[in-house]
Each structure stands twice: as structure tokens, then as C-alpha cells.
Nucleic acid binder design. Sequence first.
DNA 1: CTTCTGACA
DNA 2: TGTCAGGA
Length: 124
Amino acid sequence: MRISELSRRTGVRPHQLRYYESQGLLEPDRNLNGYREYGDSAVVTVNQIKNLLAAGLSSQDIAYLQPCASGEDPEFEYCGELVDALEARLSTLQSRIDGLVRSRDALQDYIDKAGVARKRRTTG
DNA sequence: CTTCTGACA
DNA sequence: TGTCAGGA
């Protein structure tokens, strides 16, 4: 299939597919006119890439882990190294969440105290 | 008409 | 990421 059909079947825009390719995530054949020619397996591959990007992995990580995640079912054929990468990502996300929660709590605390001080000024 | 490359914000 | 130019 050509790029527009792959785009239609994956919901990923053609220029994004070319970008994936520039990052080493896809390597389609070329037909005589220079158009990219994708096999059916590209649909699965692109869906895997979508999932991993959504999980916050870098395209470098994805390129490295691609042979690792090339099972038929993109949801369940992960190998150990991919699980490690996902867990590492989860860990850094949790750290950021913790930091944000602390900031939020501190800010809320500050607002509460400032609110009381303002009320004292305006009322008495 | 479809796709390609490269450039730009 | 999204858009445009200029060719094939």
C-alpha cells in the first residue's frame, strides 16, 4: 500500500509517517516512481509506534526496542527489555507527579493562609 | 491527482 | 507538529 492508505488505516498522517521513517522507525520499499510502498505489517508496526510514543518513550528508544516489540499482538508480546523501558518511564513519571503534588499542596496551603489574612483585613 | 523532498516557525 | 513550495 502507499502512504495515504497506511495513513487511513492507522490514523497517522503521511508527514508523520515520513517522520517516523526519518527516525529509523520504518523502512518501506520504494516503487518505480519513488513512492513509498508499505506491507500489511506496517499497520501493526505503526500502531506499536503510536502506543510507545503515547507511553512517552523517545523515538530512539523505540527504534532500539522495535525488534523486541515485533510480536503479532502489540499489546502482549513485549520482551523484557521493553518492559524495563516502560517501567523506567513509569518511574520518572511518578517522580514528576510526586513533585507536582507537593507544589500543588504547598500552593493550596499558601492560598488558604493568604485567604484568611485577607478576610481579617477586609472584615476587621 | 498523489506523493516526494526540503524548509520553516 | 503542521504547513507550504516546487517537482515528478
